[in-house]
């Protein structure tokens, strides 16, 4: 049964939205299907305030210290970090490939901007993912409406600013529909 939504505690600073933190790790040798992906998703917890966020954050392993094929997903409460979720199925994501060693800092910059509503695109942001891989790490930011070019450009500009990456960093946008079609998971 779904757990009750957390509320900010006394004296805490509420967030505009509640968020859930998820963790997943790919089992070696298994095929990546939507079902196995779903089964590997573990909910770490849901929080409603800045202080509750920091409590979770203090207890999790930093992305750069994770090993193997692992992901953190930070999504608005109620949105499952899957292409098929009704909040995501018309959406897409900005993808930034990071050299090894940058994941923890970039992930923190991204999620602080998201939690603090720095993207200024209303309800468009769904969540963020950091994917730890062997050669490089991948940051992605998911939004609801892939066809809304004005919003996706705005998200890209803010993302560039908050990540503070070199100007030649390549950013790609991919619709979830295309991801479903080519079945590309990282």
């Amino acid at each position: 049964p779904p757990r009750p939504s957390p509320k900010p505690g006394p004296g805490e600073h509420p967030l505009q939205f509640n968020y859930s933190l998820w963790f997943s790790r790919k089992s070696p040798g298994k095929h990546s299907t939507a079902t196995s992906y779903d089964q590997n998703l573990k909910l770490v917890g849901t929080f409603a305030s800045v202080e509750q966020f920091w409590k979770y954050y203090a207890h999790i392993v930093r992305p750069s210290d994770l090993t193997g094929h692992s992901d953190y997903h930070l999504f608005k409460e109620g949105i499952r970090p899957m292409w098929e979720d009704s909040a995501n199925n018309k959406g897409g994501k900005w993808i930034v490939r990071l050299k090894k060693g940058l994941a923890s800092r970039c992930w923190e910059n991204l999620i602080l901007a998201m939690l603090g509503e720095q993207f200024m695109v209303g309800e468009e942001i769904c969540g963020a993912v950091i994917s730890i891989r062997y050669q490089e790490d991948i940051l992605s930011l998911w939004n609801r409406t892939a066809s809304d070019q004005q919003t996706t450009s705005r998200i890209r500009d803010t993302l560039k600013r908050v990540l503070n990456l070199p100007p030649n960093t390549i950013m790609e946008y991919k619709t979830h529909n295309d991801s479903i079609k080519d079945n590309s998971s990282f």
Binding site: Q16, L112, G116
Partner: peptide, 21 residues
């Protein structure tokens, strides 16, 4: 509804507040 904005500096300040300990 009211938008709740926090900048990075403020969020980092909350990290060290007694409430998060």
């Amino acid at each position: 509804g009211t938008k709740i904005f926090y900048d990075r500096h403020f969020l980092l300040k909350c990290r060290n507040s007694p409430l998060t300990k």
